[in-house]
Amino acid sequence: MLTVVSIILIIHICAGTIGLLSGTVSLFSRKGFPLHRKWGHIFFVSMLVMGATGAFVAFMRDRPDSTIAGLLTFYLVSTAWMAVRRKSGEIGNFEKISPLLALSCAIYAISVGVAAAETEIGTIRGFPPTFYFGQAGLAAFMIALDVSVIVRGGLSGAQRIARHLWRMGFAMFVAATSIFLGNPQVFPEPVRRIEILAAPVLIIVVTSVFWLLRVQFTNLYKKPKKSLPHAT
């Protein structure tokens, strides 16, 4: 008989699969064009579901590392989405409240790291304190960027697009790492090799960096355009 946790785990797996497939199309399509927007919507929803359900299942199974990762993924995707939903130079209550989720993750990660240091084996779920402190540091870094956006009253131009891209890309990186490197047992034996399973993760990183560089160092997104041509 399926339990509530088992059902949510199935939803998590399905959402993650859809997220990676839609994210791949969105990642390789030209930003701002209909194809990117269409698949980006699917990626956004599926990643929110994946992050939320993953955090819930991990918490119920006492896996703080995955709980934090799931919550940060949810936070990354939601803030990335709002970066392009807002008009240039505009912020709202969401931008002022969302850092509280990252702050909660940072506090939780620090507490788990301290608890890991106090155990006899010096780890919790196989991870040392430095791993959890690293998660806390990542959350703190994101909070600092959020505070910068709030103080500046929003972003515009290339900076606004870059915030969207790197946060979506990082969320996809977390999902791909969890699936391909964190659960290699789900793949057939012939492809269960590090050089094969690491390839999708590396592709996501390289492609995300490419788009970030293109946004930052070209004039493509420097000024708002009156209209965009149809994608072909």
Rank of each mutant, 00 (worst) to 15 (best):
M1E: 10
V4A: 13
S6T: 01
I7Q: 06
I8D: 04
L20A: 06
L20D: 03
L21E: 07
S22H: 07
G23E: 06
T24C: 05
G32S: 09
P34D: 11
H36I: 11
F43M: 09
M47T: 00
V49R: 08
M50A: 15
A52I: 15
F56Q: 14
F56Y: 15
V57I: 08
V57Q: 07
A58K: 14
T67G: 10
A69F: 04
F74H: 02
L76K: 07
S78I: 10
S78M: 08
T79P: 13
M82C: 13
S88G: 14
K96R: 15
I97C: 01
P99F: 06
L100Q: 04
L103G: 05
L103Q: 07
S104M: 15
I107W: 05
Y108V: 08
A109R: 01
A109T: 09
G113C: 06
A115H: 13
A115K: 10
T123H: 03
R125C: 08
P129W: 05
F131E: 07
F131D: 02
Y132T: 01
S148Y: 14
H164D: 06
W166R: 10
F170C: 00
V174W: 05
V174R: 06
V174A: 02
A175T: 13
A176K: 06
S178I: 14
I179D: 04
I179M: 12
I179R: 07
N183L: 14
V191P: 11
I203Y: 13
V206R: 03
F210T: 14
W211E: 03
W211V: 13
V215Y: 00
T218F: 12
Y221G: 12
K225L: 11
T232R: 11
